[in-house]
Amino acid sequence: MTSRRSATSTDLLVDLVTNTADPGYAAAAARRGPGAPRRWFDRPAVVLGCLLVGFTFAIAYVHTHRDAPSAAKVHDDLVARVKAAQSSGNALEAKAQRLGTEITRARDHVLPGTSLGAQLQLSELLAGATPAVGPGLQVKLGNPPQPTTTPDNGRPGSTPIGGTEVLTDRDVRSVVNELWHDGAEAISVNGVRLTPTSAIRFAGQAVLVDFAPITSPYTIEAIGDSDVLVTSFADSEVASRYHTLAGANGISFSWSQQSKVHLPATAAVTPRYARPAETKGPR
């Protein structure tokens, strides 16, 4: 009794490790005595127990191995849906542009050579609703080449440090703003024309220009007086900053003067709330 009372927690652990057999078996054997006859439920009980055990194993196996493929399936499904939506969006945009050129042609047909038509064309050009051509500047900004990371590096759902984008919307925006400041008249980013309502934002790991996701390398094209654009841009703080970053961070950054830059049109956004304020004629 005294030895029992002095039992400490270490004894408990030793007991746990040394007495691994279920004491129930020994107790049952002692109760029944040696050479006890078989009881009627012995065999069915063993069968039932083994069935349960096997069933448990199978459930666990199926449960573990079913989740992974279904997750991959959901992922593939989502990717397919995104791609379908993107292609249908592209098709709709192309259709809108085609219809827009048709409208322009029809209007030119109706209002040939009037000052009203010319005025309209100028407004459309400013709004980015018609393709634009002219001399200008092309700036290229690219993420550093991805270091080859081992797959499954870290927990699922987390982004490895190497996978994060170095360039974000801010970088694209600062280059665009600098180009506006240097006198650009029309700008496109990766083939997306900027309009007065354009926004350059960041979502997840993609830069969004007017909700169109674009990826590195970012090509920013601007139309303007190309000499002025090049000299002003080369002098700017933005250019020197990205030169420094290109040396330190491995991003690619270059610009070149272009004698002819083609900028695409975007489907014009029709203002729904804004309307021209009543202007009195010149008195």
Binding site: R43, V46, V47, L48, G49, C50, L51, L52, V53, G54, F55, T56, F57, A58, I59, Y61, V62, H63, R66
Partner: peptide, 21 residues
């Protein structure tokens, strides 16, 4: 013997039924 057989049957039943947990 019969225990191993029952175990195998349990596994097979589980794999066939594929119950959702």
């Amino acid at each position: 013997m019969i225990a191993g057989f029952a175990l195998a049957v349990g596994v097979i039943v589980g794999l066939i039924l594929r119950p959702t947990v």
